[in-house]
Nucleic acid binder design. Structure first.
Length: 299
DNA sequence: AGCGAGCCCTGCGCGC
DNA sequence: TGCGCGCAGGGCTCGC
C-alpha cells in the first residue's frame, strides 16, 4: 500500500495510541519481517519490552517510534504490502500477521500494534538514532533532530518544512537520468512511489523519461508543485480518525478513494485530451502516461 | 554516477 | 472447480 500519504495516514493514526504507551508484549510470528533488524529475534523483543514510545515520526515512506531515553527507535517500513494496524487485545489475529506488539496506552488502555505484511518486503527493526545532517527535525511527528541510522540516507520529503527546494533543483540538474527515475530515488526526494510519480508527471505534462538535465527551472518548479499538491491531497483524503474501541489505521483509503488520472488507466481516455493512456514497461514496473500530453520533446 | 538485473516474498484475480 | 500465470504501490546490492 504505501507511498507517503498512506504512511502518513498510518503515522497519524498511531500517534495518539502509541505516544506515552509502554510495550507489554512482543510476538514475532515470522522472523523474516525482522530482516532489517541488526540482531536475533530475542534481541528485538528485549529492546522493546518495557519501552515507552515518545511518538510516531515519518520521513518519506519510513515510520518510526522513538523509545524514551534509549537513543533508539522501533522502525517500520511497509514495503509493497505492509500494514500497521491497531487492534483490541482480544481480537482474533489478522491474516498475514507477522509481528504483534502489545502496548498499554495511558488514554486508550491495552492495544495491539499489528504488523501485517503479505509479501514480507516490509520490515520492523530497533535501530539507533543518529543526528540529522542539517540539525533540523528528522521528520513529521516530533521535533527531534535524531533519525534512525537505517533512514539517515533517505532524503527529506516534499511536505517536510525543511525540504530544500533550491538544493533539489540543483541536484536534479546535476543528474544524468530520466525524471521518473529521479522522482523514485529516495535519496534525492522521498515519499514518491510509482503511483504518485505517474500522477505528478501527468499533471506536469512530463514524459517519464525526460532527461533531468534539460528540465527548465519553470518546469521543475511546476513538477515539484504538482508533487506537493498530489501528496497533500492524498494525505488529506487518507486521514483516519482514532477510535479507541476498534482501531484501524490502515491507509488503504488513500489510493483508491480519489480518481487517478494516469496510474492504472491504460486504455482509458486521458482526462485532459481524451486520447488513450498508455502503459509502458519501466524499471521492472510500469509507467502510465498520455503519449500526447506527455511527449519526450518539449513542446 | 547511474543503469539493469536480480533478489527479497506471498497471494490475488484472471483466463483457460 | 481448479490450475497456471501475470501482476502488485519498495528497496537494496551487485557488476558493469
Amino acid at each position: 500500500m504505501p507511498e507517503l500519504p498512506e504512511v502518513e495516514t498510518v503515522r497519524a493514526g498511531l500517534e495518539p495510541a502509541v505516544t506515552g504507551s509502554t510495550v507489554t508484549s512482543v510476538s514475532v510470528l515470522d522472523a523474516r519481517s525482522l530482516r532489517r533488524h541488526d540482531g536475533p529475534v530475542e534481541d528485538f523483543a528485549d529492546q522493546l519490552l518495557g519501552a515507552i514510545f515518545d511518538g510516531a515520526v515519518r520521513r518519506g515512506k519510513f515510520l518510526w517510534l522513538p523509545i524514551a531515553g534509549s537513543g533508539r527507535a522501533l522502525v517500520a517500513h511497509l514495503g509493497m504490502s505492509g500494514q500497521v494496524l491497531l487492534r483490541a487485545p482480544a481480537a482474533s489475529p489478522d491474516r498475514l500477521l507477522r509481528v504483534r506488539i502489545g502496548i498499554e496506552s495511558p488514554q486508550h488502555g491495552e492495544l495491539v500494534v499489528a504488523f501485517v505484511d503479505q509479501r514480507i518486503f516490509g520490515s520492523m527493526s530497533v535501530r539507533d538514532l543518529v543526528p540529522t545532517a542539517d540539525g533540523r527535525a528528522a521528520g513529521r511527528g516530533l521535533d527531534d533532530a535524531r533519525i534512525p541510522d537505517q533512514v539517515a540516507h533517505i532524503a527529506r520529503d516534499p511536505l517536510d518544512p525543511a525540504f530544500d527546494d533550491r538544493a533539489f533543483f540543483a541536484a536534479l540538474r546535476r543528474r544524468r537520468t530520466g525524471i521518473k527515475r529521479a522522482l523514485l530515488d529516495q535519496t534525492l526526494v522521498s515519499g514518491i512511489g510509482n503511483i504518485y510519480a505517474d500522477e505528478a508527471l501527468w499533471a506536469a505534462r512530463l514524459h517519464f523519461d525526460a532527461p533531468t538535465e534539460t528540465l527548465s527551472r519553470p518546469r521543475a518548479t511546476t513538477l515539484l508543485a504538482e508533487v506537493r499538491l498530489i501528496l497533500a491531497r492524498a494525505v488529506a483524503e487518507g486521514g483516519t480518525s482514532f477510535d479507541a474501541q476498534y482501531v484501524n489505521v490502515n491507509g488503504a483509503s488513500g489510493y483508491f478513494s480519489h480518481s487517478l488520472n494516469a496510474y492504472g488507466q491504460q486504455g482509458r481516455a486521458c482526462p485532459r485530451c481524451g486520447r488513450p493512456i498508455v502503459r509502458e514497461a519501466f524499471m521492472n514496473r510500469n509507467s502510465h502516461f498520455c503519449p500526447y500530453c506527455q511527449r519526450l520533446r518539449a513542446r
